[in-house]
Write a protein that binds this DNA or RNA. Structure first.
Lengths: 338, 338
DNA sequence: TCATATTATGCAAGCGATTGCATAAGTATT
DNA sequence: AATACTTATGCAATCGCTTGCATAATATGA
């Protein structure tokens, strides 16, 4: 049978209240009693019951994660698991548990959020932005339930979020290409309803504009998806336009490594290799010797860490909490096998 | 303020016990009352408090995952996140939550297991086998705490586990190569203290032996690690031995896709491409046109699903529960770009 | 109609902690 | 030594739900 606080109390000849106060190191208990009780706790191998504690404290000391990403993405893009490790690390530091629920069904994320909130099994929620999360955000706002978002949401008023400066990152990576002498640079965007898509496009546009380079409508592919297929599709279009006389770009800025991989694959198929490609997430990608690939490491684990920090800050009612964190991204030159 | 069972009871003009019994659909309550109470529940938007429930039921309806894998592996090998989605799916079906904790420190996994067990915050634990898990297993066995293991542990008596038939899988993949005409086949193993390493080696050995092919000591690399480095290192050795006159193998059976990737990279460096390579896990790997790569898809999500099934079965005291599941693995021919 | 069996509901004691308030013990002040 | 003031501890209610047992209500049978 499990040892309870009462067993300890009895063994130490004090009341349960005293034991409770010893555990929380309350200043109202004398050192002498503390010592004695601590010894008994040690001897009996007592450990407070987290659930009873939660009930009494009206706080579960748990945060919930909602993963409603498609399995394919979840599995191939290390972003999520990296973010999860970051979240877990900060949570552990603060004595919080982390729950997650994966669901493939559309709208399932809302169901999970509702369940989390209503059952009281978590004190707060971390969302990964995605097209369907807005419903979640609305719901959580309305419920006045603590949450934070990885990725800048549409409406940021009153929302805690963490993200990279996607404008800046794309600006830099584009600029990086320009410095290398590229002038004709294509762009592949993400889903239209993601802020990240807009920001990355604007960053690309700004860098091009600053240097006085024009943006070729035929080389900008907006409203895409963060997938290999989209990358391949766009590159195929570029290549077939080239067959019909259009000038080939010398570089392509994509919004995701999966896209970039698609682009590279399309190039390989057509035996084209002198186009520099950039992506986001620093996924493991094997490069041919004559390929040039640059990725932006978004520092996913740090994003997770900060999201947890914001959320737990909010839960514990920390004053002057920042409303968001911008996590620095890093440009990574991926080396081909010589 | 949150609505409690008492609010419902009051509003419906019944006692809390009745409401509780309506929720659990007890046959002791008349249909008439059930209807009435349900209506009130609906109207008030009542949702039972999971924590209070847990306390009363002495069960948290939560399972804990211990991830003590190195960050590098966790991130690059989709195995873990896939297994996690499988676990989450079965858990959700059964009304269980899933908690996870990531820790990088050596031995941290034991700490987490101890915390999980003592605090009563989970009803059971799923372990991913790894060299340090034996301590965890010992601890959990001693505590008589429900757990299941992904990967066959050393001592299986009284342990619930799921795994592929690694012997069989490696036998098949080796056989597959032999059928294609390969005779001189190298083997790369995993860490010595993993059962999986032994099984895979035995599978390879058996297939070779059955066909009467000898096993060249210089082509079997045991006591390795599931890493790219190890793969590269072994292949480099093979290649330099070749420079000194040794015959090159025509195929290499590895125990992990990361190893296989290392092998491929070493080959690419040396401009060797006519060696067939096999791996495990069906990781995304980009292939050169003239490379041949076969992977074994271990069906990680199914492994997770089954691990959850065993664990929850154990928690709920299901009779005649199997002690383990063998999940079928599938040989996947990875296509090079066209 | 009354005794008896059956069914539906409520009471109250848990589950294992926390905490405001009351009180006992100890210390200081005069 | 009596009073006032701290300081240390305990009592008992509370958190929200579950469940064994008692009991009230209803149905059955003679």
């Amino acid at each position: 049978m499990k040892i309870t606080i009462n067993d300890v109390a009895r063994a130490a000849g004090v009341s349960a209240s005293t034991v409770s106060r010893v555990i929380s190191d309350s200043p109202k208990i004398s050192e002498k009693t503390k010592e004695r009780v601590r010894k008994v706790i040690e001897e009996l191998g007592y450990h407070p019951n987290a659930i009873a504690r939660s009930l009494a404290n009206q706080s579960s000391k748990t945060i919930g994660l909602i993963l409603n990403t498609e399995a394919e993405t979840l599995v191939r893009n290390p972003f999520f698991i990296q973010a999860m490790t970051g979240i877990s690390q900060y949570a552990q530091e603060q004595g919080y548990n982390v729950m997650f629920a994966y669901n493939k069904s559309e709208d399932g994320d809302l169901d999970i959020a509702v369940r989390y909130v209503n059952s009281g099994s978590v004190d707060g929620i971390i969302l990964f932005t995605s097209r369907t999360n807005d419903k979640c955000i609305d719901f959580l706002m309305k419920s006045n339930f603590p949450f934070s978002v990885i990725g800048r949401p549409d409406h940021t008023e009153g929302v805690l979020w963490v993200d990279n400066d996607n404008f800046q990152a794309t600006y830099q990576v584009t600029n990086h290409l320009i410095m290398k002498g590229h002038k004709r640079i294509a762009f592949l965007g993400g889903p239209r309803d993601h802020n990240v898509s807009r920001d990355r496009f604007e960053g690309y546009k700004a860098a091009m504009t600053v240097h006085g380079y024009s943006i070729d409508r035929n080389l900008t592919f907006l409203e895409g998806s963060f997938s290999e297929e989209f990358g391949s599709k766009c590159m195929s279009e570029i290549l077939s336009a080239h067959k019909n006389g259009a000038e080939l770009p010398t570089a392509i800025v994509t919004s995701d490594d999966m896209q970039a991989l698609g682009v590279l694959k399309a190039m390989r198929k057509m035996n084209v290799s002198d186009v520099a490609v950039t992506g986001f997430n620093n996924m493991p990608v094997s490069l041919y010797k004559n390929e040039s690939f640059t990725s932006v490491d978004v520092n996913a684990s740090q994003l997770g860490f900060c999201a947890a920090k914001l959320l737990i800050g909010r839960i514990e009612g920390i004053a002057d909490l920042p409303a968001h964190y911008i996590v620095p991204a890093e440009i990574v030159e991926v080396e081909p096998l010589y």
